[in-house]
């Protein structure tokens, strides 16, 4: 059994001190991230293994490098 299963799958977090709410993450991973009409960023804290790749894409593309993905399989 791999570590991420023990922890319950990949997890997302966003560093609020860094995030400037450009919304690039929503373009990369709609459904995982959403920039609300109020300008706030909402995101799923736990994602499925299938969504981990999109979560990593959002983290890679974040202009502020504010997204942390933990427990990615593989």
């Amino acid at each position: 059994m791999t570590l991420h299963r023990i922890r319950g799958g990949p997890r997302l977090s966003v560093d609020n001190d860094r995030c400037e709410r450009f919304g690039t993450c929503e373009w990369e991973a709609p459904g995982l991230f959403e920039l609300g009409r109020d300008g706030r960023l909402r995101y799923r804290r736990r994602v499925s293994d299938e969504d981990a790749e999109r979560a990593a894409a959002a983290a890679r593309c974040c202009p502020m490098q504010a997204i942390v993905v933990r427990g990615v399989p593989g």
Partner: peptide
């Protein structure tokens, strides 16, 4: 206008 830019993207 990040929200609008998502639409225009």
């Amino acid at each position: 206008r990040p929200k609008a830019m998502l639409y225009w993207t």
